[in-house]
């Protein structure tokens, strides 16, 4: 069975973000980058499926500049068999339809029986690429999964809904799944596996070879939200801060006697 997992490299969300010169995205310099958190669960689930089946070939794909190979290598160290790097310096400005189209162009005809993606990215957060990819490849897709089991050509999964309720879903493969946080416990790559990953195949494909669609939307402006301004900001020595806070709680809330 051929399995595909799609990953995105995103900035650490704790980063100090700045706006770029064009005012259309965050400044991509001076940031620490990592694998999109949702995609870590997708990679883990893909590796578990491969381990369960034994006879499976697992490809990890990512789009972006040279530094995304670091993220691909992490997925290889977690257990993917081969990496595909769609080389694209302009990835930050790409919208979901373009990204999904490029992945679909790569995946077409390769007979992937199961495709995993994160349910959304931590930066753009559109929650579109996975479902669009499924539509483009005419595969059924199930989103926001928090449980996955596979047997005899059928996947039995649970979708997470609001309020912690789950929906039980059954679908025959080939199919696509978008992964929610908490789907599994993500492994840490071991040192031997990190070394082994360095020898695994990593194919580079220029974005221009795969992208044949025009974007359907554009960002006109990015900005920081205006501060409400009503909140009080306290800074300083912990002991003084604690005294101040206790005074405020006594004055403003009825909870401290």
């Amino acid at each position: 069975m051929n399995i595909l997992v799609c990953v995105k490299q995103v900035p650490d969300m704790e980063s100090k973000f700045k706006i770029n010169a064009a005012g259309t995205w965050y400044d991509i310099t001076d940031l620490a980058w990592r694998m999109n958190e949702y995609d870590e669960y997708a990679v883990e689930q893909a590796v578990r499926l491969k381990e369960q089946l034994g006879d499976a070939d697992l490809t990890v794909i990512s789009i972006g500049p040279a530094k995304v190979t670091e993220t691909i290598k992490k997925a290889l160290a977690m257990g993917c068999d081969r990496g595909v790097h769609i080389v694209d310096e302009a990835v930050a400005g790409r919208e979901p339809y373009e990204i999904a189209s490029a992945i679909a162009a790569f995946a077409a005809g390769k007979e992937f029986a199961v495709i995993f993606t994160g349910m959304q990215s931590q930066d753009r957060g559109s929650a579109q690429v996975g479902v669009l990819l499924g539509e483009m490849l005419s595969l059924p897709s199930v989103t926001t999964i928090v449980d996955f089991a596979y047997a005899d050509g059928t996947a039995v999964v649970k979708r997470e809904l609001e309020g912690g309720i789950k929906a039980r879903i059954k679908v025959a493969v080939p199919a696509l799944f978008t992964c929610q946080l908490g789907l599994n416990t993500v492994r840490y790559p071991t040192l031997p596996n990190i070394m082994k990953a360095k020898k695994k195949e990593l194919l580079a494909v220029p974005m221009a070879e795969l992208l044949s669609v025009e974007p359907r939307q554009e960002t006109v402006k990015i900005s920081f939200p205006e501060k409400k301004g009503s909140g009080l900001i306290l800074e300083g020595d912990p002991a003084e801060l604690a005294d101040k806070l206790i005074r405020i709680l006594k004055d403003k809330t009825g909870v401290l006697a």
Partner: peptide
């Protein structure tokens, strides 16, 4: 954007 850290104005084509 980025879990509410920033906001983006988006125009459809």
């Amino acid at each position: 954007v980025c879990n509410g850290k920033m906001r983006r104005e988006v125009k459809a084509k």
